[in-house]
Design a protein around this nucleic acid. Structure first.
Length: 595
RNA sequence: GCGCUCGUAGCUCAGCGGAUAGAGCAGUUGCCUUCUAAGCAAUUGGUCGCAGGUUCGAUCCCUGCCGAGCGCGCCA
């Protein structure tokens, strides 16, 4: 039988505590072999029904041939939850509603407050997880298209790292392939010093050359031939080509680093070139597996379930007719490397939804070749387009791609304008460092939050005005809630770390109870996100937390209250602030002490 | 033509097979001698694209249709 001790000993989510209670009650009431047909417990769909609810009685009614309310009554007869809940009730057709006891809430909040990790222990079974994200192309500037992958990938990595997993963040940069043949061929004609002298080119120049090279490639057949030849040379390790390539990569890398530094994102660069020596084996091993075919001079695997425009099975090309390899080959090589060399148990690809087919095809081929062991999960995490307000792919007014650098700078500039207006309106004097710091944190936080707070699968309309609006479901609103708590500690000279250990909390006001209950749900939310990889759920949680805190703040004076209420409220405020800080940090967003 | 994703309030979006579908913004109305009003409270606003089906129960799952976006042989 499950005892109450298990709850108190190891802090675990309320759901994780309640589920075995229901399992036990069901087994006791009806025997252990029945299948519930619904989740045993869930967070209540509406606060007026309580805090948690169980709907199992409804699906069970049929198989047990009893009215659902009768089934619910039998479950309640065996359900032991009096250590954490008020007496459960049956409502409507047979819902079981549970409400947490204030004293239980208080003890849980107290445990969270005493814990540096807010009561969330690392997972018992840490996994080796590879996350492939950001992945800009060398010789091109990072642009809006890289924003979502970079931000979403970083957020997923932070959450899994916090849970205690061993995460390898890989930047699969485009540092190989046709584009380099193109660029090297073009530069050797137009600007040969760039291929032999480091820092001969700014990244901006490189981008301009890239465009010219691309145009030649698309219109000049002879140039195209020479470019393809150059790729093959590079892939065969020709020293001159290799040197030129390294210079180009170095140039781009320095530019990327500035953006990653600003965004505080850490990545291990392991570009396509890394897998060069493994490509030939991919093709020969596919051959050995009996999957390889040759079609129009290209080596390929014909896919199951993919039909081309002519109605024929579609191939995945792994070696082009000119002998070169392409991104499918590289992705297959990378996949194998991550499984065999990195011992990855879970491999996550954060790229735009447009690549869904590509990954489905690569995964299929790897699967059929027997390269993906049963225990390894390989998953594409797609996200929608960044659109302009016209609903089309985002461009500048003149039709150019927006540089990520410009986008971030503009966000910070907007934030700074807002801060200055506010400081002036309140007749405050603040140092320029103070203003610069606030602008940076808010501007970058707003960009990240606007992106992460959308369900990633849908397209996302990019609007400076909406993203930088400092009201509503935005980063500044959340940061402001945090700042309000710090305001309390400054005003009252409170050191939250010194509130003492043997506190007795008393939670009575509705807004205190609502806030406390929400604080206890972080672990459940994180567990969900670790499975579904949907960061917007964390945003939703933090936004609701901020709303609930602001309601509490408006209704419950903290510093003026008498003890034990005063201390209880201080603890609630402290736990709220630390939850916000932790949650925001998992989104890659900083907090401010004052704003 | 085929595939993937999406369609929820005026706008931008949440919504995990459950009870009367929720936020934010915009609109209307209150609240600053009180821990920062970047806040709070109240209020208006819905044929969940359409039609079937599965289910005790469907915004959610299945089928068909309509509409939008993206992709579909040697770019990544």
């Amino acid at each position: 039988m499950i005892s109450a001790e298990s709850v108190v000993e190891a802090m675990q989510s309320i759901l994780a505590t309640l589920i075995p209670r229901f399992e036990w009650a069901l087994a006791a009431a009806f025997g252990s072999e029945l299948t519930p047909g619904a989740p045993l417990v869930a967070i209540a769909s509406n606060p007026k029904f309580g805090d948690y609810q169980s709907n199992v009685a409804l699906p069970l009614a049929k198989s047990l041939a009893q009215p659902p309310r009768v089934v619910a009554e039998q479950i309640l007869e065996h359900l032991q939850v009096d250590d954490l809940c008020l007496p459960p009730s049956i409502a409507g057709p047979g819902f079981i509603n549970l409400t947490l006891q204030p004293t239980f809430l208080a003890s849980q909040i107290q445990q969270i407050q005493a814990s540096p990790r807010l009561g969330i222990d690392p997972v018992a079974d840490p996994q080796r997880i590879v996350i492939d994200f950001s992945s800009p192309n060398i010789a091109k500037e990072m642009h809006v298209g890289h924003l979502r992958s970079t931000i979403i990938g970083d957020c997923i990595a932070r959450i899994l790292e916090f849970q205690g997993h061993d995460v390898l963040r890989l930047n699969h940069v485009g540092d190989w392939g046709t584009q380099f043949g193109m660029l090297i061929t073009y530069l050797s004609e137009a600007y040969p010093t760039a291929l032999t002298t480091s820092e001969a080119l700014e990244l901006g120049d490189l981008v301009a050359f890239y465009k010219q090279a691309k145009q030649r490639f698309d219109t000049d057949e002879a140039f195209q031939m020479r470019s393809r030849q150059a790729v093959v040379q590079l892939q065969q390790g020709d020293p001159k080509a290799t040197q030129a390539w390294q210079l180009l990569c170095g140039q781009s890398r320095r530019e990327f680093a500035k953006i990653y530094d600003d965004l505080e994102i850490k990545l291990t660069e392991r570009g396509e070139s890394f897998y060069n020596l493994l490509l030939a084996d991919v093709v020969s091993d596919l051959d050995k597996a009996g999957l390889l075919a040759t079609d129009q001079g290209a080596k390929c695997v014909f896919l199951e379930g993919f039909i081309n425009k002519q109605g024929n099975p579609q191939p995945l090309i792994v070696q082009k007719s000119d002998g070169g390899y392409n991104y499918a080959t590289t992705d297959l090589a990378a996949l194998r490397h991550r499984i065999t060399q990195e011992a990855a148990q879970r491999i996550i690809y954060v790229t735009d939804a447009g690549q869904a087919n590509h990954f489905a095809q690569v995964f299929q081929v790897a699967e059929r070749a027997g390269w993906i062991p049963e225990a390894v999960q390989v998953v594409h995490v797609p996200f929608g387009l960044v659109q302009g307000e016209d609903g089309k792919k985002l461009k500048t007014r003149s039709g150019e791609t927006i540089r990520l650098r410009d986008l971030l700078q503009e966000a910070v500039a907007h934030a700074q304008a807002d801060v200055k207006t506010r400081v002036a309106k309140e007749n405050r004097t603040e140092s320029s460092d103070f203003i610069a710091n606030i602008s940076q944190v808010i501007g970058l936080g707003a960009v990240k939050y606007a992106d992460l707070s959308q369900n990633r699968t849908s397209n996302y309309v990019f609007s400076y005005d909406k993203m930088l609006a400092l009201q509503g479901n935005t980063a500044p609103y959340l940061i402001y809630a945090y700042v309000r708590v710090q305001g309390i500690s400054r005003k009252g000279n409170i050191n939250f770390a010194d509130l003492g250990e043997a506190l007795t909390l008393s939670l009575e006001e509705p807004s205190e109870l609502v806030l406390a209950k929400h604080l206890l749900q972080l672990q459940e939310v994180l567990n969900e996100i670790a499975t579904d990889l949907l960061p917007n759920r964390l945003c939703q949680y933090l936004f609701e937390l901020s709303q609930k805190f602001n309601q509490f703040y408006g209704q419950c004076p903290v510093l003026q209250a008498a003890d034990p209420t005063r201390t209880s409220r201080l603890v609630l405020a402290d736990v709220t602030a630390r939850t916000l800080k932790l949650g925001l940090s998992l989104l890659g967003i900083n907090v401010l002490e004052r704003m």
